[in-house]
Structures are given as structure tokens and as C-alpha cells.
């Protein structure tokens, strides 16, 4: 009897191994371990055994049932895993097909550049002060120490309105006097952003309309050394911590001493390339100590107060930063340009 049991076990094991797939396994289970399965049928033979034989047979039968159940569970798990694999394999995608891109908006590159400038100077206590685009000649020139017919006026060709004495501002320095007169006698730290206009031939390098940011600080303890430190910090935050700056003497009627600030070329790091015309330096902004005449015109006594001013072009900064070679792109607003930023 025991012999028959073992033979049955071998047959069932072989049949399990031969069953592939969940359905075949389920059929095997029904036929082997089910209520009417072959193992169950073997228990019927128990009655034919002697009382001595019966416990051993029963023990062995239970062992075999447990083994077969365990083997079955393992085979079923394998079969299910294989089925899942097959199902997933059938659902493979071409991951290189393009995705669905949501339409989204962007800020203009000029806005982004202005915000960079506001943020850096904001951290140093400078706040944004805005003044009109359409300005008086007095604010734009005379009070900034540009006398009528002075050669300095030819540095900035103006658009004149049909109202005498009213022009389109040529620089946001025009807001200096307004800020000083409004804030006197407080110390001042402001950035003056805005649109400027010059009667120039429109080319890849010059526009009749452009944005500018002017910086103005006034107080009783402000020196050219502070100007250098503040602007060098600015340049490093905007263009990278390893930027070198160079200050060289220049001329603006409303500052004295005046300077141009250059930064070491962001492309070649000073080695010389076509962007920096092989000088290793890029001109970034003009600056200087506020001229005593301008301080006085703003209401501040030049014997007591000192100040510095700087003017920079956000387009120029963006052009250097992103390698844009044509300033007209800023106003053409071609989406193929704008969507790159």
C-alpha cells in the first residue's frame, strides 16, 4: 500500500512539473488534491490497512499532501509572475516618442534680467524707484550737469517732443534728481529702471529704444572704494564668483570721478576671444561718484554728502550671458526667440 502511495506521489509530482500555465495548474490541483482528486481517493484505501500500518500510512499521506500543496503554490506563483511579465512585455512603449508638452507661458528675457538686477541690489538695500519715460530736458540733462550745446550732449542723441523742453529720456539717470528731491534728507539707495530712447540708427548693436537700470546711493559716508566694492559684488553674483573687475577712468557729466567697469570675459575668462575682441575684458557699465553740481541740484550739500551712480543695460547683460548677437531680437518678440528663455 505504501508502495502504491509513493508511486502515486511520483506520478503527481511529474504531472505538476508538466503543467504549464495557471489553468493547467488549477486542473492538476483539482485532479490531484481536490475533493475528488487522486490523493483523496487514496484515503479510501485506509480501511484496507491493518491497525499497525494505518498511522504510518496516514502520516506519509499527509506529508505528501503538504509537499504537493507547497510545490503547487510555488509553481502557481511562478506561473502568475510569468503571465504578468508577458502582459507587461506586450505593453512596452517607444519611450523615444515625444511627450505631450503642456503649453506654458514665459517671462520676457528683459523682465528676467531686470529681476536678477533688482534681487542682487535689493539684498544690498537698494529699492526700485521709477520715473517717467517722457521727461523734461531739465531732469534729463541740465540738472545732471549737461549744459545746453555741451559736447556731452552729443554722446546721447535725443528724441525731442513737439513740446519745448520735453524729450524722451535718454537714460534713467533722469530719475536721480527726482529721487533725491523726494527723499532728502534721508540717505538714498535706489535702482532706477526703465525704458530709454536715443535717436540712433537701429543695428544689431544699437537700438532706438532700450532698457536701462541706474543705481544711485547718497549718504555722508560713501566713497569710490564703496562703488568699486558694491559693483564688483554685483558682477560676481550676476556673472559668477570668479569674475574679475576692472575700473578705468571715463567721463560722464553727472559723475566725477567717473569710470567704466569691465568684467573678465565670461567666455574666455580673460584669455582673449572674439567676444571680448581679444582684450579679455567686457564693458558692462559706466559709473562714478555723483558730481557735486548734481548733489546740489538734488538738494544735498556736496560738502557733506557723497554718492555714487552706475548705469547698465539689461539687454547688454543678457546678450553677454546668453550669447545673443542682435539687440533687435529684444523688441522683435519672435516667439522662436522668446521661447528659448
Amino acid at each position: 500500500m505504501l508502495e502504491e502511495l509513493e508511486q502515486h506521489y511520483r506520478q503527481a509530482t511529474a504531472a505538476l512539473a508538466a503543467s504549464e500555465g495557471r489553468e493547467a495548474l488549477a486542473a492538476w490541483h483539482r485532479d490531484t488534491l481536490g475533493k475528488k482528486g487522486s490523493i483523496y481517493l487514496l484515503t479510501r484505501n485506509l480501511g484496507a490497512l491493518s491497525a499497525e500500518e494505518r498511522p504510518a500510512f496516514g502520516r506519509r499521506l499527509n506529508e505528501i499532501k503538504a509537499h504537493l500543496e507547497a510545490d503547487y503554490d510555488q509553481r502557481l506563483a511562478e506561473a502568475e509572475a510569468a503571465a504578468l511579465e508577458a502582459q507587461m512585455a506586450a505593453g512596452a512603449l517607444d519611450v523615444t516618442l515625444p511627450g505631450r508638452r503642456p503649453a506654458h507661458g514665459r517671462l520676457h528675457i528683459t523682465t528676467r534680467t531686470l529681476r536678477d538686477i533688482y534681487r542682487i541690489f535689493g539684498d544690498m538695500g537698494f529699492q526700485v524707484y521709477r520715473s517717467p519715460d517722457v521727461e523734461t530736458d531739465e531732469m534729463n540733462f541740465e540738472l545732471l550737469n549737461f549744459p545746453p550745446h555741451h559736447p556731452a550732449r552729443e554722446m546721447q542723441d535725443s528724441f525731442y517732443t513737439t513740446t519745448p523742453g520735453v524729450i524722451l529720456r535718454t537714460h534713467t539717470s533722469a530719475g536721480q534728481i527726482r529721487a533725491m528731491r523726494e527723499y532728502y534728507p534721508d540717505p538714498i539707495r535706489v535702482v532706477l529702471p526703465g525704458m530709454c530712447y536715443r535717436n540712433e540708427q537701429v543695428t544689431a548693436r544699437s537700438e532706438m529704444q532700450f532698457t536701462q537700470v541706474e543705481l544711485l546711493a547718497v549718504g555722508d559716508d560713501i566713497s569710490f572704494a564703496d562703488l568699486k566694492g558694491t559693483l564688483t559684488d554685483f558682477a560676481r553674483r550676476l556673472f559668477g564668483a570668479d569674475r574679475q573687475t576692472r575700473f578705468r577712468a571715463s567721463y560722464f557729466p553727472f559723475t566725477e570721478p567717473s569710470a567704466e567697469m569691465d568684467i573678465s570675459c565670461i567666455l574666455c575668462n580673460g584669455a582673449g576671444c572674439s567676444i571680448c575682441k581679444y582684450t579679455g575684458w567686457l564693458e558692462i557699465l559706466g559709473c562714478g561718484m555723483v558730481h557735486p553740481v548734481v548733489l546740489r541740484n538734488g538738494g544735498y550739500d556736496p560738502e557733506r554728502y557723497f554718492g555714487f551712480a552706475a548705469g547698465m543695460g539689461p539687454e547688454r547683460i543678457a546678450m553677454l550671458k546668453y550669447g545673443i548677437d542682435d539687440i533687435r531680437q529684444f523688441w522683435a518678440n519672435d516667439l522662436r526667440f522668446l521661447e528659448q528663455f
Partner: peptide, 15 residues
């Protein structure tokens, strides 16, 4: 100009 020191603003912070 390059030999003049570089310092940060130490003047009173405006309102």
C-alpha cells in the same frame, strides 16, 4: 583706479 581699495557700503541703510 585698480589700486584703490574695494569696500562694501557701510553708510546708514536708508529707510
Amino acid at each position: 583706479y585698480d589700486r584703490i581699495p574695494s569696500t562694501l557700503l557701510a553708510d546708514t541703510l536708508p529707510p
